[in-house]
Design a protein around this nucleic acid. Structure first.
Length: 569
RNA sequence: CGGGGCGUAGCGCAGUCUGGUAGCGCACUUGUAUGGGGUGCAAGGGGUCGUGAGUUCGAAUCUCACCGUUCCGACCA
């Protein structure tokens, strides 16, 4: 590509509304342009990156035996009513009406549509298993779109859906998809980690997320130092091995603690540690039933775990007014509650706790040297913390931040049941299909790659997804015939060798060309100037490295090919 | 959903308090010099000041409403 015939448009100043580096650089480099909140145009340079990612995904998916199709972005409400998700999906779903007042949505995902296709198309076990995928635009009306294409409302997703005669077959495909995803992120050139995950709104049984590791990630993931245990923080567990305490139980005292409500205030007052305190968190469900969760003072309640254990769909933090006319005194709640109408739960962080401090269920009083009754049942209701033992007993947990770029699920029969998607087995009897689904956030990968690879001059794209592999920068393109001829000649040769090269033939000042090629993250740069040409050499520089070196023109193509071939299968 | 900020040229902003001919930097156009890290000089083009109502002789500026956009907020027991 010649720069004079392409479209490069960069900015010196970062836009004010871009908080994270990838968003700033994508705007500055002219990869994307905002149209409206959470809606972005992909400008030519950005689209090139996107297409390269798509290509890798397609190749790996096809290699894994998946078959590409394309479903409509707009979907009729009837399908969603069959699975009950028309209402359940909530305001995230963009609902629209056509001229006949029929309801549709802009697809936030495609389980319903694919299941509808398959229930009509697949009738025999002989057609199974089948794994169908598409790369397509989705829309989810996020409450707060932010970080550019990282959390946009409209985004590009690869979604695959597999159908099976039984769970065993699903497990095999799931394994293959796990491998395939690993290969994809490997080839794109990202530092990533696969973790066990909560299956969330999509539902189903087993699931794994693939996270790109980055400080700016919106998710926290926990992984073990001594084993390959890794899980999303929402799901991560630890084990509190039963330490047999030799400490004698003391007599409980009631202590006046006027207006001391927070853990920090209590730590100061008792000069103790947070884990000497048992704190109480009150949750409520949709029907305003109250649940009190007791846990160690340094821990936080994991509402997702609580929802599962309590068995309610959604829990909210209770406010002080919800506690009126109950035995619960905000700031002074303790385990010794009389009322039977309030359900109590105890986090497993309390299972060895003795002689602790807790609320006295009376305004302005706490108990010291309190102990739990012997028959208390403990549940896992809290988030793990850095340094907690790994649940498999090997090593301790570390926590880092990640950006979720892939998610695979074993859905089982959730959707096929709801939509009556059946096949005939070997005995000629009708059975419900078993299903899996596998998503990759294609547009989000662009942003996460930049989060992971950038410096003060701009983006540093991994070579397999860079907008161009090589840039040729001639100095004095119009002044010197030798420079011009050499540049054009080299450009033609690189194009012929199948290298994705940009020739900056705009005759700009060198500084501008350097700054722009650095900003958009082209990994390899060749500078052609009159001086070095006298010894038949050109300058070669790898983006992100400080030193350039001179290379003989005659060896250049071979050397470039070697570099580009390395680790790009 | 609650609270705050901001809407003036493609981008970043000043001007608003105290009403009186709409400005600056970047980008763009032309000329000129320059030519290895966003170059200098000169001359230009581009704006219904988010929308609508109101106050006023006169509104970017004051009032009200609306729209857009952005940030923050659900571990306090």
């Amino acid at each position: 590509m010649k720069a004079s015939q392409f479209y490069i448009s960069t900015l010196k100043e970062p836009p004010v509304d871009a908080e994270i580096i990838s968003h700033q650089l994508m705007i500055r480099g002219g990869l994307i342009k905002k149209l409206s909140s959470g809606l972005y145009s992909w400008m030519p340079i950005g689209l090139k990156v996107l297409k390269k990612i798509e290509k890798i995904i397609r190749e790996e998916m096809n290699k894994a035996g998946a078959i590409e199709l394309l479903m409509p972005a707009i979907q009729p409400a009837e399908l969603w009513e069959e699975t009950g998700r028309w209402n359940k999906f909530g305001p995230q779903m963009l609902k629209i009406k056509d001229r006949h007042e029929r309801s549709f949505c802009f697809g936030p995902t495609h389980e319903e549509v694919i299941t509808d296709i398959v229930r009509n198309e697949i009738s025999s076990y002989k057609q199974l298993p089948i794994n169908l995928y598409q790369i397509q635009t989705k829309f989810r009306d996020e409450i707060r779109p932010r970080f550019g294409v990282m959390r946009a409302r409209e985004f590009l997703m690869k979604d695959a859906y597999s159908f099976h005669a039984n769970q065993d077959c699903l497990s095999k495909t799931y394994e293959i998809m796990f491998e395939t995803y690993s290969n994809i992120f490997e080839r794109i050139g990202l530092k990533y980690r696969a973790v066990s995950a909560d299956s969330g709104a999509i539902g189903g049984d087993a699931s794994h997320e693939f996270h790109v590791l980055a400080e700016s990630g919106e998710d926290a993931i926990a992984f073990s130092s001594g084993s390959n245990y890794a899980a999303n923080i929402e799901l991560a567990t630890t084990n509190f091995a039963n330490k047999i305490s030799k400490i004698e139980k003391l007599k409980t005292d009631k202590v006046k603690t006027e207006n001391l409500k927070t853990i920090d205030e209590l730590i100061k007052f008792f000069s103790c540690n947070a884990d000497d305190i048992v704190k109480a968190v009150v949750l409520k469900d949709m029907e305003k039933n109250l649940y009190v969760i007791f846990l160690s003072g340094e821990r936080e309640v994991n509402q997702i775990k609580a929802q599962k254990i309590i068995g309610v769909e959604e829990l909210f933090l209770a406010h002080d007014e919800d506690l009126k006319n109950t035995e619960l005194v905000p700031g002074f709640i303790g385990p010794d509650l009389k009322s039977q109408s309030i359900q109590k739960f105890f986090d497993h962080s309390l299972q060895d706790k003795i002689n602790f401090i807790c609320g006295a269920n009376e305004k302005d009083f706490h108990l010291k040297n309190a102990n739990l009754a012997d028959d208390v049942v403990f549940d896992d209701l809290s988030y793990v913390k850095e340094g907690d033992p790994s649940p498999d007993g090997k090593g301790t947990l570390s926590i880092c931040r990640g950006i979720e770029v892939g998610h695979i699920f074993q859905l089982g029969k959730k959707y096929s049941n709801a939509m009556n998607a059946k096949f005939l087995n070997e005995n000629g009897t009708s059975e419900i299909l078993t299903m899996g689904c596998y998503g990759i956030g294609v547009s989000r990968i662009v942003a996460s790659a930049i989060e992971q690879n950038h410096d003060e001059n701009g983006m540093i794209f991994p070579k397999n997804i860079a907008p161009f592999e090589v840039v040729i920068i001639p100095i004095g393109f119009l002044k010197s015939d030798t420079v011009k001829k050499t540049s054009l000649d080299l450009y033609e040769k690189l194009v012929t060798s199948g290298i994705d090269v940009l020739l900056d033939d705009r005759d700009m000042r060198p500084g501008v060309m350097f700054a722009e090629s650095d900003l958009i993250g082209i990994p390899y740069r060749i500078v052609i100037g009159q001086k070095s040409l006298e010894t038949n050499q050109v300058e070669f520089k790898i983006r992100g490295e400080s030193e350039a070196k001179n290379i003989d023109l005659s060896n250049l193509i071979e050397e470039l090919q070697n570099i580009l071939m390395k680790s790009s299968n």
